[in-house]
Simulated scan of single mutants.
Amino acid sequence: MPEQDEQSLGQLVANASRDLSALVRGELELAKAELKESVAAAGKGAGMFGAAGFLVYLAVILLSVAAALGISALGLHPALGFLIVAGVYLLIAGLLAFIGIQNVKKAGPPERTIRSIEEAKALMNRSESNGSDPKQPAAIDR
């Protein structure tokens, strides 16, 4: 005869279900906390990158002014020094634009996807011409 301390099968299943639910809820809470920390760290990192980018932008402006004034210190008119610096920047921008255009021209349509779609169309057309049901998957010839 079973002892009174033993639980019935239904009680064991209920306890296991309750414990499993508690475990899943605990894991979800842990995942939420970890994600919250990760997102906060990523946000701080992105803010730091943004601040660094802004400071680099300011440094480029100041270095450009310094370069223009340095050219004018060589005996040229200050306006000519600023035009030279601006010209150098325009040459660099033109070079970057040229390289960018060349890279864009290299981009093409997704050839593998197009080929795969054409093969699927051909397979569908072949199965329809054989009289098979188009809703049923066609047998693949091997």
Rank of each mutant, 00 (worst) to 15 (best):
Met1Cys: 09
Gln7Met: 12
Gln7Trp: 00
Gln7Lys: 14
Leu9Pro: 00
Gly10Phe: 05
Gln11Leu: 08
Leu12Lys: 11
Val13Phe: 11
Asn15Cys: 05
Ala16Glu: 06
Ala16Lys: 08
Asp19Asn: 15
Ser21Gly: 14
Ala22Thr: 11
Val24Leu: 11
Val24Met: 06
Leu28Lys: 10
Leu28Trp: 08
Glu29Phe: 05
Leu30Gln: 14
Ala31Ile: 15
Lys36Arg: 12
Glu37Met: 10
Ser38Asp: 12
Val39Ile: 15
Ala40Leu: 13
Ala40Met: 07
Ala40Glu: 14
Ala42Asp: 07
Gly43Lys: 12
Gly43Tyr: 00
Lys44Pro: 01
Gly45Gln: 08
Gly45Val: 00
Ala46Arg: 13
Gly47His: 00
Gly47Ile: 01
Met48Gly: 12
Phe49Cys: 03
Gly50His: 04
Ala51Asp: 09
Ala51Tyr: 02
Ala51Asn: 07
Phe54Trp: 06
Leu55Gln: 04
Leu55Pro: 01
Leu55Ile: 03
Ala59Trp: 03
Ala59Ile: 02
Val60Asp: 07
Val60Asn: 10
Ile61Phe: 10
Ile61Glu: 03
Leu62Cys: 06
Leu62Ala: 15
Leu62Asn: 05
Ser64Ile: 01
Val65Trp: 05
Val65Gln: 06
Val65Arg: 06
Ala68Cys: 03
Ala68Trp: 00
Leu69Pro: 00
Leu69Ala: 08
Ser72Gly: 02
Ser72Ala: 15
Ala73Lys: 13
Gly75Lys: 03
Phe82Gln: 01
Phe82Leu: 06
Ile84Leu: 13
Ile84Met: 08
Val85Thr: 09
Val85His: 01
Ala86Asp: 04
Gly87Ile: 05
Tyr89Ile: 12
Tyr89Gly: 15
Leu90Trp: 04
Ile92Asp: 04
Ala93Trp: 02
Ala93Arg: 01
Gly94Tyr: 04
Leu96Trp: 04
Ile99Gln: 11
Gly100Phe: 06
Ile101Phe: 10
Ile101Tyr: 12
Gln102Glu: 12
Asn103His: 12
Asn103Trp: 07
Lys105Ala: 12
Lys105Gly: 00
Lys105Thr: 02
Lys106Tyr: 02
Gly108Lys: 06
Pro109Val: 10
Arg112Gln: 13
Ile114Tyr: 05
Ile114Glu: 08
Arg115Ile: 08
Ser116Gly: 00
Glu119Asn: 13
Glu119Val: 06
Ala120Cys: 02
Lys121Met: 14
Arg126Leu: 12
Ser127Gln: 15
Ser127Phe: 06
Ser129Tyr: 02
Gly131Asp: 03
Ser132Ile: 03
Ser132Arg: 07
Ser132Leu: 09
Pro134Asp: 04
Lys135Arg: 13
Pro137Trp: 07
Ala138Cys: 01
Ala139Tyr: 01
Ala139Lys: 09
Asp141Gly: 06
Asp141Ile: 10
